[in-house]
Nucleic acid binder design. Structure first.
Lengths: 225, 225
DNA sequence: TACATGGTTCGATCCCGATCGAAGCGTCCG
DNA sequence: CGGACGCTTCGATCGGGATCGAACCATGTA
């Protein structure tokens, strides 16, 4: 009767308050230790340990040992994308949930795994699209010359892109805007560059990014219609 | 501490064997009644009823009353896409799960909500891409003249497309191929057309599609390099 | 070598939710 | 109208899994 992969198993792993919070906390791409996560979620180290091992078994997170610490992070971009998609659906069912004061900041700009999401992330993606910067390559999207000339104003160039199998551009669904933002290797490089330029800074203990007035102005100028 | 939408709630709804099976059974886009689903999953009508109400509350499925029957279906394309994405991850953790004999058929061609997935679905999507048929429009992808000239050989034309807010083309992640296939209004129309032409036929009680030899040959000719 | 600190394992407890049968409520059919 | 059928609600039962503290292991530090 049952067809296809066992979806229930993965979902059950995510579908527990504590574990879901762990995933949420890791969604900014950072790697955290077990105790940090235990404190963040408000649970004993022992229970956190059991949660982490289940998450790891489901390949949702990956662990890395450094000395006597173990750092946990989201396993890969696919997982991050799934989680963002899920947030989109989750938001529909609990629309007027009273978020904390950080919520506006989250909607404005945040990290999604390793790239930029939120209003500003969507703005950049759509700006590139408006300028016809995207081309369909053999596998996925690439950026053409006109696109690179925009990006060069941020100090990004093809030569600086890491040589990996990871696709250069991907469109990732944004839960707050319900539109796309830029993911992939370029998305990651762009986010990193914004921090390097001090146009954006991560807020402590949050996925939210603080974007300076100067930074936002510059970005809007570059990608303006 | 907690940021963003409550992901755990949605995941918990999916993360139960019975409910996950319901979603799986509805993934072919059909609408089934409560008793049909109860039989399919192997559970009492009463428990199925409770499952269905939870699924509905989470907006994962939608119900429609017709006389003394209630028909349940996947709520929308976003949900379907999320589920396909989840199958992709689920497959990684249980790679050598022994599927039924229908599995090869599933991988060959199946319905994903209302459009074509599997090897053939991916082939069509990539064929269109190879021919440079996709253009970035204001919102999402569209098809250009060269694309429509390919599609016209299937009897599809812009005029026949339904006038809805639904995007014409979307790229949906395929769990079996781990690549994209064509979703959106065009994807749905294409799948419908294949059945109309009797190039493809749904297998009973399965998402799998049987594609006739003639049908496959024609499709491969149309989208060949 | 001893001690502190990060993490996991173990055993016991306890609660949420999946399950069922029976009863109730509509809707269609003879 | 009465009976059949589809579906939901209710109350009771039961099991899986989340939780904790304590003991244990491993890796640094004095």
């Amino acid at each position: 009767m049952y067809e296809g992969p066992n979806i229930a198993r993965v979902a059950a792993v995510i579908g527990e308050r504590g574990r879901a919070q762990v995933l949420g906390a890791l969604m900014d791409g950072r790697a955290l230790t077990a105790t940090e996560l235990a404190d963040a979620v408000g649970v004993t180290r022992s229970t956190m340990s059991s949660h982490l091992s289940r998450l790891q078994q489901a390949r949702l997170i990956a662990a890395e040992s450094q000395g006597r610490h173990r750092y946990f992070r989201i396993a890969n971009a696919d997982v991050a994308e799934l989680l963002e998609g899920m947030m989109g659906l989750a938001q529909l069912t609990t629309p007027q949930q009273t978020f904390g004061p950080r919520d506006p900041a989250l909607r404005k700009a945040r990290l999604c795994y390793d790239h930029l999401a939120g209003e500003l992330g969507v703005y950049i993606y759509e700006g590139l699209k408006r300028h016809g910067s995207f081309v369909h390559a053999n596998d996925g999207l690439t950026v053409n010359d006109s696109g690179w000339s925009l990006l060069s104003r941020l100090g990004l160039s093809p030569a600086l892109m890491p040589q990996t199998r990871r696709p250069l551009c991907r469109a990732c669904v944004d839960w707050s805007e319900r539109r796309h933002h830029l993911a992939g290797a370029l998305g990651a490089a762009l986010a990193a560059r914004l921090m390097e330029l001090r146009w954006a800074k991560r807020l402590p203990h949050s996925r939210a990014l603080h974007v300076t007035a100067q930074g936002e102005k510059s970005i809007r100028e570059i990608f303006a219609r």
